[in-house]
Design a protein around this nucleic acid. Structure first.
Lengths: 150, 150
DNA sequence: CTAATGAGTTCCCTCAAGGAACTGACTCTG
DNA sequence: CAGAGTCAGTTCCTTGAGGGAACTCATTAG
């Protein structure tokens, strides 16, 4: 397929895609997040080809998003866990889930609900400004060239 | 490549990926967002193959994320604009940009800055709870099966 | 009349995804 | 102890999507 590499574009979106832009990678992350951590579990859950799963896991570990942890010495068995870098990527998944719930969930409603520890309520995520805490959306920001000039 | 379709998985993340999971789609959305709206402009900006760009634009329009608007009758010329459904997807891009800024921007810093209208400050997005307005992160939620049972 | 522009379309080639079978180290069961 | 099972991959082959470049077509500018 000779995929173009996004990594060297001067764009944080492109560079993020370089890490989780490949097919399956976000779903693998989701699985690890919800506790499906072992090779065969992930493979069975996603129906992904074992070959591609091997590749993706290797890439995600190299990218520092997942870490491989050995949970049994003999026989050697390991599982995959989220690193802090990976956990922050899960925020992306939560926003994806929100959009999917809103625009693609059918009559039946969302497949998964999120209960917030702080308030105990079923809720979803909203984007707020890191400075003033007010809601922040694509319509309420201006884009300016940054230090690494666009 | 015979890509597996995610659309019928009972998972909002998978269904979202079905819309913007293909390579290039998020970057096309980003371009349209920042004002690069015409075929040749997008093609030149991304360096994407014209064939693939044609396909992606068609898919994104069919998915209701972009709309094609004719800006000239003779010769027939059109440009692509975000629908409300697409604009909400841009939130996803903003979260991607945040992660990319944080984890992949080098010494030079972020390539693009976001200035929030409400406060006028350079800021980034943070995830808050739609119910209690407190910060909401992967660590502060429990997942429960929803009406469309996981 | 020729060149340029915008928006695609067509063609061929390569290489990544799918799929299924195989490996190898161990463990459990009768 | 033989045979089945489990986990985590690896190997091999086939197919089809992505890349690249050239071509089309309508229209306008010089």
């Amino acid at each position: 397929m000779q995929r173009t590499q996004f990594g060297d574009m001067a764009c944080s979106i492109a560079r993020t895609l370089d890490v989780i832009g490949e097919s399956w990678s976000p779903l693998i992350l989701r699985d690890v997040w919800v506790g499906i951590r072992r090779f065969d579990e992930i493979q069975a859950d996603l129906g992904i080809s074992r070959k591609v799963l091997t590749e993706r896991l290797k890439l995600l570990v190299e990218a520092g998003v997942l870490a491989r942890e050995q949970y049994s010495e003999r026989p050697a068995r390991s599982e995959y866990v989220l690193t802090p870098k990976g956990t922050e990527l899960v925020e992306l998944l939560m926003v994806m889930a929100k959009w999917g719930d809103r625009w693609t969930a059918g009559h039946a409603g969302p497949p998964v609900l999120y209960r917030h520890h702080a308030c105990g309520e079923i809720a979803h995520v909203e984007l707020h400004c890191s400075t003033c805490d007010q809601p922040m959306s694509p319509e309420t920001v201006d884009l300016l060239p940054g230090p690494a000039q666009s």
